[in-house]
Design a protein around this nucleic acid. Structure first.
Length: 292
DNA sequence: ATGGCTGAGTTGCTCAGA
């Protein structure tokens, strides 16, 4: 089973990239973030195209901002929008999480609040939202859960192109990293880092100033898998090709391939993917000062 | 050099993203 997550930065703008990507990578489960569409508008835009490809769809969207989705062709049951009772909102509840059971795995698609600046109320909201996510995961069965999405936290200094460039900014502060550690302590594993412990791996590059071309990015889109899922991981990689070319999102997809579950409950067998092997030969580079 | 780009709604501007 192939699972993936992608912050598309507007489903409407990304249609010409999203549909060919689905056809090339053929993921069984896809978590999307920043769809920026109300549910009716999403269905009108993509419903038939996704149904033609065999996907059921779980949506939790709103106009203009945020918006998450799960696409699945291995079943889509027990859909829950949001984080449950008592979930924080600022200034009002936002469409940032949706959950569903797909092929025996509890899948959670998340778009963690940005936080803006560490001294802002948006930052406090980010921490409260992460605590609420932890509580929802812990109340379920973490071992068979996978939380995927735009976490908006770089887990360590190895996950940003230059730690000095982020001093005093969100995404790298100790409280954010502690909140992520709490979530992992519930039993979730950062499977991309576990597979590539010493590699330079980013998932986001600013649109400006040739940041992608220079590989000056951050790793903030994560696949956090419970132990029963993590032990099935056979490949875990960032699809940088989707960040290239005309009209990309500023985030690249993260793709994870899982062996069959022990009980065989994985849905239909799919043909071997056309995807290349995970990138090799991308030795960690010396920290670059960036453009002069 | 705190912007350089992109997207959306309140459009010819503002806010937000990370």
């Amino acid at each position: 089973m192939r699972i993936a997550t992608w912050n598309v930065n507007s489903a409407k703008q990304r249609v010409p990239r999203l549909l060919p990507w689905l056809d090339e990578r053929r993921p069984d489960v896809v978590c999307l973030q920043e769809t920026k569409l109300a549910d009716g508008a999403f269905t009108e835009l993509l419903g038939s195209e996704l149904a033609d490809r065999g996907y059921e769809v779980a949506l939790h969207g709103e106009a203009a901002w945020n918006g998450v989705a799960i696409l699945s062709r291995v079943g889509l049951d027990d859909v829950v929008a949001g984080l449950g009772d008592g979930a924080p909102g600022f200034p009002h509840p936002e469409a940032r999480a949706v959950s569903a059971t797909c092929g025996g795995t509890r899948v959670v698609s998340v778009y963690v609040p940005n936080g803006r600046t560490p001294d802002s109320q948006h930052y406090q909201y980010k921490l409260a939202w992460l605590a609420s996510l932890h509580d929802m995961v812990a109340a379920g069965d973490p071992a068979t859960t996978v939380v995927m999405g735009d976490i908006n936290i770089a887990p360590s200094d190895d996950d940003v192109f230059d730690p000095d460039a982020y001093v005093g900014q969100t995404h790298v502060t100790p409280p954010e990293r502690a909140a992520l550690a709490d979530l992992q302590a519930a039993g979730l594993h950062d499977v991309v880092r576990d597979h590539w412990p010493d590699e330079r791996v980013f998932t986001y590059w600013d649109y400006r100033a040739g940041m992608f071309h220079q590989d000056l990015g951050m790793r903030i889109d994560l696949v956090l898998a419970g132990s029963a899922v993590a032990e099935r991981v056979r490949a875990a990689w960032v699809d940088r090709k989707a960040r290239k070319g005309k009209g990309p999102s500023d985030h690249a997809p993260v793709i994870v391939d899982l062996d069959e579950a022990p009980d065989g409950d994985v849905g239909p067998v799919v043909p071997p993917p056309s995807a290349p092997a995970p990138r090799r030969g991308t030795k960690k580079l010396p920290q670059s000062p960036g453009p002069s």
